[in-house]
Nucleic acid binder design. Structure first.
Lengths: 213, 213
DNA sequence: CCTTACTAATTAACCGGTTAGTTAATTATA
DNA sequence: TATAATTAACTAACCGGTTAATTAGTAAGG
């Protein structure tokens, strides 16, 4: 009997719950995500959620772990393919941009968490974000030591990069709506794709790191 | 009988509710803000909230209106004191930074709303944000016309400014915590004051708008 | 190959607590 | 006294979480 025709598959059910929880939490946020609705979306009984994840917080933890490990691995792996700080910086930004665009629950979850100062589940998010920030800082510091970067304040630059990208991803529907209005002529980058955006941010961050005249 | 000794004052009660609602919504977010708790903080009966604002959404609308009108007026007024685009840009950023720092409920509410794509109360937030963005765009366009700015993409720059400032304000407690850890040596700008941060962002935005070599 | 016994996965029904919102009565003020 | 402000008590719905019972898969024993 192959696994596919099994009516009961713990691992599959567990993954199903995480998959739907990922989108539910990113749509509604922690508090507004209902376990009843989640079970309905999964086509499973609500008790299964608590059977596998103990409680709502436990599920949220599992979701965040998966999301953050994914992005962290993607960036760390990509980083190994470069040797010059300037290429590393470009790779960092581009990888984050692509990942955030392909997995839009990441920016949504991150912004919600950060606007709460990590009210729901701080420790792991905190550690993971801190490691990403440590890598970013390291790239800038090495660049400064080699003389190719100047006047870098890693914390502010880090937020410039991920803050901008997160907002551009989450506000896409809003920006499309704004572009459709015709009372004021505004360019909301509604049609820009993520590569163009990443290119612009990379160019501007590089320009910011040039020697000030 | 002076108004101060009155036991009943509709306007005062209404304003009291908005004041406490402002901090409650920014602390807990829309869903987790309880009307019972709000009434308790105000020292009023819960029914008063519904008497004056009809329902929770109505109260939230009133709160957002006040918050957004405040920041919009602050920036618009300040803007009138300048004539050169470069000073206007600097004024815009500095005014937003100061206001966000003095009224930290603004960044918290804004980030929550934007990460939801305006799920709770879109229209007014949308209009207000759009007007601020229109002013920002206008400053950049006039600067480009005069030849003092180059290669500006207003939407991305706008998010760079307000995204970075919002994150720096809301993550202050998180950054203090991170700075206290000693396993990795990281500068999280935990002790930076808002003026230093604004100075840095202004300098870097100006550098980004210089002619690319 | 079939039965039995055990375990893991799944379900329906339920629980206490909390929530937004209502209502009818009461109090203060003009 | 008329009206606006205020209150206590209430409701209906929903929430996270539990429980006891049931079902499906699995491995051993005859």
């Amino acid at each position: 009997m192959s696994k596919k025709t099994q009516k009961r598959d713990a691992e599959a059910s567990k993954q199903l719950i995480i998959t739907y929880a990922k989108s539910l939490f990113s749509e509604k946020g922690y508090a507004q995500a209902s376990m009843d609705e989640l079970a309905q979306r999964c086509g499973l009984n609500k008790a299964m959620v608590f059977y596998y994840f103990k409680n709502k917080k436990g599920l949220y933890e599992a979701v965040m772990r998966e999301v953050l490990i994914e992005i962290q691995q993607a960036i760390t792996e990509e980083n190994k393919t470069h040797s010059k700080p300037i290429d590393e910086l470009e790779g960092f930004i581009r990888t984050y941009a692509r990942y955030a665009c392909e997995h839009p629950y990441l920016p949504a979850l991150l912004l919600k968490e950060l606007s709460d100062s990590g009210a729901v589940f701080p420790e792991m998010l905190f550690t993971s974000m801190r490691q990403l920030f440590a890598l970013f800082t390291d790239i800038l510091k090495r660049g400064e030591a080699k003389g190719c970067f100047h006047d870098a304040v890693p914390m502010i630059l880090y937020f410039m990069v991920i803050g901008t990208l997160n907002l551009l991803v989450t506000t896409k529907p809003l920006r499309l709506k704004a572009a459709a209005l015709e009372d004021i002529d505004l360019d909301t980058c509604a049609e820009c794709d993520i590569e163009e955006i990443a290119d612009y941010i990379i160019a501007k961050i590089k320009q910011m790191l040039k020697e000030p005249q």
